[in-house]
């Protein structure tokens, strides 16, 4: 059940990522929703699930983006594994730590992803510090929001159900 949920989440992130990209100038957005899902799953489920999610999501993302299949998967695998370890070793229940984790995960992902491309002499990224920082902030914001939404959503549903039952009485 959980696996199906993760697959659906990754699929939704990919769909959203590709859909939103059409409406942004230049065809790209400064948020990697798939990476956000991977880090989210890793923080909530641990390193093994994190790395498997990263592998799956990264490979699918690579396949859809006509890149070298495996580079994005490798980067997201590492990030998912590390995020999972952080999630199990540290208390990441507040927004700031989550922000930092998402921020750091994005930076790590960028280092591995770009590093592999540059190492293999497949693509040069110049000095992508600004872009990476922007994406890291964007991912961190989206991630923190996602956590908040996910945590608030069950309570809001409960509150709404209780209000409805009180009105009926």
């Amino acid at each position: 059940m959980k696996t199906v949920g993760i697959i659906l989440a990754v699929a939704a992130a990919l769909a959203l990522q590709t859909t939103l990209a059409r409406f942004v100038a230049g065809g790209t957005i400064a948020v990697d929703l798939v990476l956000v899902v991977v880090v989210y799953v890793a923080l909530t489920s641990g390193p093994a699930t994190g790395l498997l999610t990263g592998t799956f999501a990264g490979l699918v993302q690579d396949a859809l983006s006509s890149n070298v299949i495996g580079i994005g998967g490798l980067a997201k695998t590492i990030v998912g594994f590390l995020a999972g370890i952080v999630g199990t070793q540290f208390i990441v229940a507040q927004s700031l730590p989550r922000f930092v984790v998402f921020f750091g995960a994005t930076v790590a992902h960028a280092i591995v992803f770009m590093g592999l491309y540059m190492l293999l002499d497949l693509r040069h990224f110049g000095a992508p510090y600004g872009a990476v920082a922007g994406q890291a902030v964007g991912n961190a914001v989206v991630g923190v929001v996602a956590f908040q939404v996910a945590e608030l959503l069950p309570g809001a549903v409960e509150r709404r159900r209780s209000q409805r039952s009180r009105i009926r009485r």
């Binding site: 070298v68 299949i69 580079i71 490798l74």
Partner: peptide, 9 residues
């Protein structure tokens, strides 16, 4: 998994 992806790349 890392090794597999390295091979894939």
């Amino acid at each position: 998994v890392i090794l597999g992806q390295i091979l894939l790349i």
